[in-house]
Design a protein around this nucleic acid. Structure first.
Lengths: 191, 191
DNA sequence: AAATTCATGTAATAAGTTACATGATTCC
DNA sequence: GGAATCATGTAACTTATTACATGAATTT
């Protein structure tokens, strides 16, 4: 999985420019696959060379010409192939978890600061999810319900995951605050 | 966050060779920050140039000399600085979620195959976590309980998160199987 | 006899980030 | 008058992956 396949998936909905793609990514897969503007343009150029997309230049008065990219049959085949191939799980990099892993090398006060900061980040994220449906109402208005359903699934997942993270960090904070440095039970009371 | 800081954290426990680091990473932070062997060696070289670590060559009979890396005061300072700096959240890339996002572009049968595959991957991962405490019993035996505690926290998190993922995907599978393509409620019954 | 462990690396490539550059138009 | 929107890019750099290379000792 790379940005290439995300772009294939978006262009399979409708042809777009690099500029459109950036805006679409920002309001859709941004939470689990962000992309900066420059990478989108360079990636589109590579995809064109590979024959996955074609580009059509549409001149504009007093603005740079729009370069609209569309999937080729090759690109569509590549996309379906990727979509039906299980992705290697466990290659996800989570920087804040690395910090928690090493937090034992800080004193209690600093470790607790780290944990409390994390919790507030989690809470902010949860609030952010709450406003997504409204933000997307316009952009989703014309999509078929089935597409909408899968789109919203990932938001639903983000919410569930963030709630689970907050519950976990609450337990951690409590344990550190009460200095109960016992090993947490793995099959513990997580009901 | 990069591999550099993970290496700083591990070398702060004790000086190690690149070979040792690879083995240690594989049984510790691998789940949320994997590293291949070649990257570890090249990163150590860079860190030495930056003055974060020093290297001591220990000759061996009939084996290549061990190159043991230790933190310098600069390296230790950099580590503490990084550890107490909040990491940008939301840069985590999750390939399988991108697939779910685009699964609406498959027919029901193929989408369900994707979802069932994902579920079996989640279940396998959960089983994998169950065997971690035993695997690590030897390597952790001499560590102080406080270090052990933070180490095991990340395992505990992995378990909680995976359980949450399985619950989520069960709900998704059920919805697709019964063709209830309604938008999932965001504040729904996730108790 | 074959596989694994120990122990080191290099080279080529891919993927992603940061910073810079241009310029009209429209909204506040 | 200043900020945001539209629309394109390039260059330098960092980070990570894949593939190759060597060779003795030990375990199965």
């Amino acid at each position: 999985m790379t940005l290439k396949h995300a772009i294939l998936g978006l262009l399979n909905y409708e042809p777009m420019t690099g500029y459109d793609l950036k805006k679409t990514i920002d309001i859709s897969i941004n939470h689990f696959w962000p992309a900066v503007q420059s990478q989108i343009y360079t990636t589109l150029a590579k995809m064109e060379k590979e024959g996955w997309v074609t580009m059509e230049t549409i001149p504009q008065e007093s603005l740079p010409p729009r370069k609209v990219y569309s999937l080729t049959p090759t690109g569509r085949a590549e996309f379906v192939d990727w979509l039906t191939t299980p992705q290697p799980y466990g290659e996800t990099r989570v920087a804040w978890l690395v910090q928690v892993f090493f937090a034992g090398q800080l004193d209690d006060q600093k470790a607790l600061l780290l944990l409390h900061n994390l919790k507030s980040v989690f809470r902010q994220r949860l609030e952010g999810y709450a406003s997504i449906p409204e933000d997307n109402r316009d952009s989703l208005r014309n999509d078929p319900p089935r597409d909408k359903f899968f789109w919203m699934l990932t938001v639903d997942f983000g919410v569930a995951q963030t709630i689970s993270q907050i519950q976990w960090i609450d337990k951690v904070i409590h344990t550190v605050e009460s200095r109960e440095y016992i090993l947490p039970t793995l099959a513990g009371d997580r009901s």
